[in-house]
Design a protein around this nucleic acid. Structure first.
Lengths: 342, 342
DNA sequence: GCTTTGATTTAGATCGATCTAAATACGTAC
DNA sequence: GTACGTATTTAGATCGATCTAAATCAAAGC
């Protein structure tokens, strides 16, 4: 504001030091809030920074320290409200901890995920929060380990990889959903959609199956995978209806898929919640607003994000501690889409 | 994979050069795909990079070049589907152009926006795509200019600031919406919600008023501002209903607000689309799925994002070209929420 | 007065890629 | 054999903050 320099050159610590009449080293200490410098000196330096409009140069600092005070985050679909909210939860905590965030979107593509992880490494991020794309090979994580890059997996884990993980209890969640449907009188329940090989889907499916068995029921149709988009859910539901009409309830991979499924039902002249019950996963904000409002298994994304940050910061601090998992318990939210069976 | 080094040290260009039997400078030229190096040499160097698992060090490079091949993006609410999709549009094009993206969320807070812009500067981003928060002072943009940081404003512009801008034609869009409502027989139309001082809202409001005047109508209630959240829309609608019951149609700041408004209507025993017509802005993916499906003015976020990237890349390339604006024309999507008046 | 201790400050090397200016190599022409 | 042009390679300086090891200074102890 008050400075009138028009030189193209950036203000450096050197300039600040000169202006304040101290050495570069001292100015650097002030920057890092070291208790070594005298109060008087600190004030002078701070004043000079203000006056000259100094801006920290992260590139220079990371080059020297090999750290960047930055964390990389990769989600599979930022347009999915679940991940958008997850990202917000992550960001808010990292922000408090004074970390910059490199937020990225892999679009469920392995090649993009690889590229982004490499970029994060190029940026020398201090750690990574990763929701791995479907079919992420163990090798991808091994590479991070070779780079000595702390990682926490979020919402999805990988078999045979020993890394920190934060997610919801998908097995349990699916069981709760099935119990609820059975309780409402449903006996012919199908599982619908989701990325074929993600851990989240595998767990939801296994919980689903375990619960069916416990109730002495069996699957009415092979569970089909789908993109985690509305269209994916729509198409999967259509296929399911083509295959059988013995279904009275569907447990969907997530809310977005459930929405697609409900649209498909309507397109076939069936009323979701009346003719066929629908239950989703995630409890995204819209779920309560659709007609019929969607019954769903809630796994609060914001808390997942925050727990993940906590784990990551801890691992950055102490890289050699034991691997930990945080599994958040789900909650079943009953709404109109799973109204009592008539 | 095949290397068994277990030294903690990172592989540098120096290491690659040594392995390939060339100088650091040559290795650097290979990295940047310079036509100067001989094919044979290039192959050797690339092989060594592969073998040693070399990873580019951006910090070192940007320190030297004062560029980072990175672009900063700040939106006001990543949880709003409009901005999520905008972000995806931006990211996909920047990705093609080989830029890394620093995606951030200002949550409509000026202090956070300031902080994030500073972090972007610290990262030496080559340019910024900014959707300014409400009440962003001219000064904030001036600072960017002082930093010689190319900026393109997205979706919202600022008065008295001469910067590139990409957005939809909000004036026109609002007029189209009013014309449509009048056409359906509505005479008592109110404007609802949105951040009090954003340009987008001002334009939508002025288009709204111009159209009313053209049709010889007048506002039935003072337009009230609100947060751009469902709750904001809900509360604003409640207040409006408390104030008057002469309203037969509302034009909402955007779809999210419109959803809130529809919920409020229902809570009051009124059926949106039947008792009161509702029109939104943005055409987010959910708009077609709500019951009633939402009539809305569509301004494709993905295209806004892509146009913005184009402008930014151009400005990064040629910083001194004239300031440009790209105004995309809106499209009115008529759905059930503005069904014919009975 | 002279050493010692603790509190501050600093010179100079360092991180890794890039840039400049100059060197080297290799034909070809004279 | 020397000179010249083109093609290719390179030594060494450089970006800006941080780190190490050492210097400086003031007050205290004897």
């Amino acid at each position: 504001m008050q400075d009138k320099r028009s030189t193209g050159r950036r203000v450096t610590l050197q300039d600040v030091a000169k202006d304040a009449g101290v050495s570069r080293a001292t100015a650097s200490l002030v920057l890092r809030e070291s208790p070594l410098v005298a109060d008087e000196t600190r004030r002078h330096v701070l004043a000079s920074m203000q006056k000259l409009g100094y801006v920290y140069n992260r590139a220079a600092a990371s080059l020297r320290t090999q750290r960047s005070h930055t964390v990389g985050v990769a989600v599979t679909d930022i347009m999915n409200p679940f991940f958008a909210e997850l990202a917000v939860g992550i960001e808010s905590l990292l922000d408090e901890a004074d970390y910059a965030v490199l937020l990225t979107n892999t679009s469920e593509q392995l090649s993009k995920q690889n590229r982004l992880l490499e970029v994060m490494h190029e940026f020398q991020v201090d750690g990574v929060l990763l929701c791995p794309v479907e079919d992420t090979p163990v090798d991808a994580i091994e590479r991070l380990r070779r780079w000595e890059l702390p990682v926490v997996l979020v919402a999805r884990y990988l078999a045979n990889v020993d890394v920190d993980y934060v997610g919801g209890d998908n097995v349990r969640g699916a069981q709760m959903a099935v119990d609820h449907l059975v309780d409402r009188g449903h006996g012919d329940i199908a599982f619908l959609g989701g990325p074929a090989h993600s851990s989240a889907r595998a767990d939801r499916l296994s919980g689903f199956r375990a619960a069916l068995t416990r109730h002495g029921l069996h699957e009415v149709a092979a569970p089909r995978a789908s993109g985690t988009t509305r269209d994916g859910g729509h198409d999967a539901m259509m296929e399911l209806l083509d295959e059988t009409d013995a279904v009275t309830a569907v447990l969907c991979y997530n809310d977005v898929v459930a929405m697609g499924a409900m649209l498909a039902l309507r397109a076939r002249g069936l009323e979701p919640g009346k003719d066929i019950a629908v239950v989703g996963f995630d409890d995204i904000a819209d779920a309560s607003l659709w007609r019929p409002s969607l019954s769903t298994v809630s796994i609060p994304p914001r808390r997942i994000g925050q727990e993940a940050v906590r784990l990551l910061l801890h691992r950055i601090e102490k890289p050699d501690t034991d691997v930990r998992s945080v599994i958040l318990s789900p909650e079943l939210i009953v709404r109109d889409s799973s109204a009592p069976r008539v």
